[in-house]
Design a binder for these strands. Sequence first.
DNA 1: TAGATTGTTAATCGATTAACAATC
DNA 2: TAGATTGTTAATCGATTAACAATC
Lengths: 211, 211
Amino acid sequence: MDKEISQAVIRRMPRYYRYLGELIDAGVERISSNDLSSRMKVTASQIRQDLNNFGGFGQQGYGYNVKYLYEEIGKILGLNEKHNIIIVGAGNLGQALANYVKFEKFGFVIIALFDVNPDLKGQKVRGIEIHMLDELDEFVKHNKVDIATLTMPKSKADTIANHLVDLGVPAIWNFAHVDLELVDKNVVVENVHLSDSLMQLSYNIVKNKQK
Amino acid sequence: MDKEISQAVIRRMPRYYRYLGELIDAGVERISSNDLSSRMKVTASQIRQDLNNFGGFGQQGYGYNVKYLYEEIGKILGLNEKHNIIIVGAGNLGQALANYVKFEKFGFVIIALFDVNPDLKGQKVRGIEIHMLDELDEFVKHNKVDIATLTMPKSKADTIANHLVDLGVPAIWNFAHVDLELVDKNVVVENVHLSDSLMQLSYNIVKNKQK
DNA sequence: TAGATTGTTAATCGATTAACAATC
DNA sequence: TAGATTGTTAATCGATTAACAATC
């Protein structure tokens, strides 16, 4: 049994991945933890500790091969596999997310949107069809859905989330401003609470003024 | 000099605020840390420690007055003051954020959008005008701008961010997928990296499958 | 071989939890 | 007054940093 890797480490992995991607684009072949640490403004020690949670990717006296490390982190983050995403709630935010081409670069493909608004029926966003919510069950049964994105009003989020999980959807990307109650269900949830983010910013503005 | 309050605490404050708001709506007048802890699934000890960073809001033998605590946390988060927001980048995400009415409930008011696309000139999103980027300087000089939201492509984010800070904008809400380089500048930054969020979710999906 | 840099153990620091005296 | 519950100190736990032996 592997020791559990803390979410603090996981949160840093996409950032390593991003910097390594930039280094590849810049034509850099190898990098030391010390060099990377000064670019990223974290300690070299933390970089080495973080990476060694997953294995020894470096070489003494040499450092890390940028391309190799990039690919390994990609695998750790599951980016070597394609993830099909549906978006439930085709309002402004849902459609904005559907328009984000960049996610596909990392293997995240949006395959459908759902909404209750009949005006949207059959419309397409970047070629992706908006379905009616009552078609959801059929769709999930006949398509591989890896992630369901929740961009509907919070009053409906909990019911739909539970329904999706019961249909077998293994992961939820939740933009609704509630804590989903998915008791005893085997599902992975990632919350994006934009209001919370704004409030944190607001706190830091007040604090910064006081200095 | 106050002791510095950790960002770990700050990240939890909006969640307390949200639960207290729901308790008010539910007509609950007072609550103990123990009661709140079982609802929120954190320890009562943590709740009391967190709150006591800012002051003693409770009363022995009674607990916390919900409405009072809600208001006090609101003040801590700076929600008693109005914050004017501009959105730089009026693409899908920028417009989606402009359409979010809910932010106003917390005092965050979006007063303008900016873009380089001439097709958008003069258009309005929920009554909020889209300006051309070359009008930015004049606008910032003549209007109180508390927060600039960056929803433009990452290649432009750094330059515009630096420019905004030089114009006197004290805070940046950054949706561009880069770490802004604002060396030696007195500015507060809050990042929302949606790709990173998806990657964390992806990692947890892989991990969850292995169990 | 000598120099560089990792992987990993040990030390430190900070955050969380437990315990309980203070007090409403 | 007795019971409840906070505010706060002390104990524990976990995460970060420092140090260095291993090794390329």
